[in-house]
Design a protein around this nucleic acid. Sequence first.
DNA 1: GTCTATAGTGGGATAGAC
DNA 2: GTCTATCCCACTATAGAC
Lengths: 189, 189
Amino acid sequence: MTEKKSSKEKIIETASRLFQEQGYHATGLNQITKESGSPKGSLYYYFPEGKEQLACVAIENTTENVAFQIKEGLMSEDEPIKAIQTFILELANAFEENDKRIGIPVAAVALETANTSEVLRETCKKAYDKWHEIFASKLIKAGYEESEAKEAALVINALIEGAFINVLTRKNGDPLRLIAKYIPNILQK
Amino acid sequence: MTEKKSSKEKIIETASRLFQEQGYHATGLNQITKESGSPKGSLYYYFPEGKEQLACVAIENTTENVAFQIKEGLMSEDEPIKAIQTFILELANAFEENDKRIGIPVAAVALETANTSEVLRETCKKAYDKWHEIFASKLIKAGYEESEAKEAALVINALIEGAFINVLTRKNGDPLRLIAKYIPNILQK
DNA sequence: GTCTATAGTGGGATAGAC
DNA sequence: GTCTATCCCACTATAGAC
């Protein structure tokens, strides 16, 4: 209803960004409240169960944002191979334009908490399931058989995540540009 | 020279395992000293610059261990496609046999520290360079052209890392088994 | 409901005994 | 060289004023 963002929204957005850039354990609630401009009392008012609960909501927020970005990115072309390639090249450019400080959505939190928090692990799993579904749907619309499309979607997403790790350690987008060239290989019999 | 492991070695091995399973920030020096059976004074005697220095040495240790595992895994077959597929299937089985608690070597630390520690980022980058080189060398020996082999090596490693993230969030090895099927696609023109 | 002050715990790091 | 005791600080979480 209100035009300006609520405290709760500001906390969620700041938390989403910081968890993505720094991971779960490196991100403190003090930093989140400070950068969002909200006092700590508000954080515990909205998220009474504390950090783990906030992280779940933040990851769900990131999941939706990234899902929207993938959908938009894939709309650039009808032909799915070209569309996916274009999306990947845009990722590489976005990384280099954003001061190279962006992180991989969800991945750091997923790796850190897979063994220590079932609820966070499940939340990250749902993120990947959702993104896979979007890639698969693009392929199915273009005539690919359903089970084949679902498999290819997982493979393509894995390729992007793995290349992105390499992008971060090199601080340049070339690994993403390289894997874009290999998308046709994934999608041929 | 001595038969039993030195304190320093025990610290490095414990640190390597914990950083891999939990990441950088979730792993405390207290936990490392406790699980390695060494007092904290010893840790700072051997690693006077503290946690970051220890993490570098631990990652270098992991780099060598994993390099050895890849080399050994790829020796199972002469033909590189089959050899890489066998290696990936072994990874999936190892995950399920090791209580599903194993982490992805180096990846968590790489994601957490890419923006905050240049020295750790560089150390992780060297790990990936080394592993790429091993895959590439297997391909070159089998007759692949050098630049093509180097590219394919990066793509295959990215595929493994990305699938491994999904394996951890699902707690089952199937994503690795799936990408193994796609290795021939990467290696054909 | 919004915010401040503070408790309590565990982190990295250090000094110095032996 | 090996180990203990301790410091300081940042973290999560809470109590309670307004």
